[in-house]
């Protein structure tokens, strides 16, 4: 009845836009606000830092948070706020870069497997299953064991660990999409495989991949921090949240601030990204529409 009315008035009721749906999601907004804050901190780190990140001051160790040192100082007298600020760059970068690697390679493999099917699909799916049989952390640890310690290697390790989930997601989306009429049509008029893949299929499978990537960044930050906590990631002197957390573990009863603030940073980054991911998932996931 309504539709007829609308039609008569020349108005077609559009489904509400993604943005307007999101703007009503409180948790999504909260996530965005926190993340923007963290990104601002990361971008303006040199301006926000009040001290040199690596200059130790043996006369000012374990100073509790105060007006000059907002987050206190650590065991060798470095300013934790300044290290926290620079640490945000590393953690966000690790999360983002690892997800780019995972999404890029995972999607490509998934699209190839889904589109060509048969032997390639069986082989790639079998490979993913093997990778998925290992817990993510274990996989990352084994990759680190081969590559050696270092931040770049952490990014690669966490990225590799996330390839299987992207590949599965891309593959199943392609399987659904490639049976659509418009793909058949494209094939009939003689489009090349590459054109069909990138012009017709890819845009239609991006949404679930974006949701997965958003949620994955949180996991990647946590995994990166964990590897650094274990001493495999960021090398000494680098202000990385995971390694800062680890460095403070011996002083928890005496100087809680050494560990708590970097821990809080990790917590906020992951919380904000998960809130955003959940929000996006509600809106973008075709099943929830």
């Amino acid at each position: 009845m309504n539709k007829i009315n609308d039609f008569r008035h020349g108005l077609i009721s559009k489904p509400p836009s993604v943005l307007s749906l999101l703007s009503h999601n409180f948790y999504f907004i909260l996530g965005v606000v926190i993340l923007i804050l963290l990104i601002l901190i990361a971008v303006f780190a040199p301006l926000l830092a009040t001290h040199d990140v690596n200059s130790a001051d043996p006369t000012a160790t374990f100073i509790a948070p105060n007006v000059n040192q907002w987050m206190g100082t650590d065991n060798i007298g470095r300013d934790i706020w300044s290290r926290f600020v620079f640490g945000s760059r590393i953690s966000l970068l690790v999360g983002l870069a690892a997800m780019v690697i995972g999404m890029l390679f995972g999607s490509i493999l998934g699209i190839i497997a889904g589109f060509y099917g048969s032997l390639i699909d069986s082989l790639l799916s079998w490979l993913t299953e093997v990778l998925m049989a290992f817990p993510g952390m274990l996989l990352a640890l084994s990759v680190m064991a081969v590559l050696g310690p270092g931040l770049t290697n952490v990014i690669i390790a966490v990225g590799i660990g996330s390839i299987p989930s992207f590949m599965r997601m891309a593959r199943s989306s392609v399987l659904k999409t490639r049976e659509m009429d418009y793909i058949e049509a494209a094939r009939t008029i003689g489009c090349k495989d590459s054109r069909i893949l990138f012009r017709h299929i890819l845009p239609n499978i991006l949404r679930p991949l974006i949701v997965l990537a958003t949620l994955g960044i949180g996991g990647a930050i946590l995994e990166g921090a964990s590897l650094s906590y274990l001493g495999l990631g960021a090398q000494p002197m680098t202000p990385e949240w995971g390694s800062m957390l680890s460095a403070g573990r011996g002083f928890l009863t005496n100087a809680w601030w050494v560990s708590v603030f970097p821990g809080l940073g990790i917590f906020l980054a992951i919380l904000s990204i998960n809130l955003i991911g959940d929000g996006l998932g509600d809106v973008l996931d075709p099943i929830n529409k």
């Binding site: 690596n54 200059s55 130790a56 043996p58 060798i76 000494p236 002197m237």
Partner: peptide, 11 residues
């Protein structure tokens, strides 16, 4: 001591 040592050298 490694970071403290490094900070002396940096200075």
């Amino acid at each position: 001591f490694m970071e403290l040592l490094a900070s002396y050298l940096q200075k």
